Computed example of a mutant assay.
Amino acid sequence: MAGKIEARLKELGLELPKAAAPAANYVPYVVSGNLVFIAGQITLWNGELKFLGKVGQDFTVDEGKEAAKLCALNIIAQLREAAGGDLDRVKRIVRLGAFVNSTPDFTQQPEVINGASDLIVAVFGESGKHARAAVSAGALPRNVAVEIEAVAELS
């Protein structure tokens, strides 16, 4: 029987990508006590890079939000792995650290990252409300538009 969070994903019409393997010398997540530290997740969908370029130049704010949503789906996929396949073990999303590949004059990073924050709250409800940083980056790995890391608490 699917858990509450898996049912919520289905209800929202959301599919999770396959949890991506690391692209360099790091692990996708670390569990320390009850906390899970998720490495930066990029705009990858089952091995295919999406949203390559800069927000404010190649993408609008709304397109940036879609890129952020994809990062959030990858975060949830990694959380599922870290929780042994049971997303109901996620007690709280503690923090998101978000980076937007944008032009020097772009200042709407918070609006872009709302795409991820809104998705996380829609999936996890009250326990999805989190602290957050949303900053600009002159470039991101593989030229992706957004990268987001996360900290979550497991029960």
Rank of each mutant, 00 (worst) to 15 (best):
K4C: 10
E6H: 09
A7D: 15
A7L: 15
L16R: 07
K18S: 14
P22I: 09
A24Q: 09
N25C: 10
N25R: 06
Y26E: 05
V27N: 10
V30N: 14
S32C: 14
L35K: 11
F37I: 11
A39W: 10
Q41I: 06
Q41S: 10
L44E: 03
G47C: 12
E48W: 03
F51H: 01
F51V: 02
F51C: 00
L52C: 05
V55R: 06
V55F: 05
V61H: 14
E63G: 02
K65M: 07
E66A: 11
A67G: 00
K69M: 08
L73S: 04
N74A: 12
I75N: 02
I75Y: 02
A77L: 06
L79Q: 04
L79V: 05
R80P: 03
A82E: 06
A83I: 04
G85S: 08
L87K: 09
L87E: 11
K91W: 09
K91I: 03
R95V: 04
V100F: 05
V100H: 07
N101Y: 08
N101F: 03
N101K: 07
T103A: 11
P104E: 13
F106L: 08
Q109A: 12
V112W: 05
I113E: 06
N114C: 11
N114T: 07
D118N: 13
V121I: 13
G125K: 09
S127C: 13
A133G: 15
A133M: 12
A134R: 08
G138P: 01
L140N: 10
P141W: 13
P141T: 11
R142C: 15
V144D: 04
A145V: 07
E149I: 13
A150Y: 02
A152I: 04
S155I: 07
S155T: 04
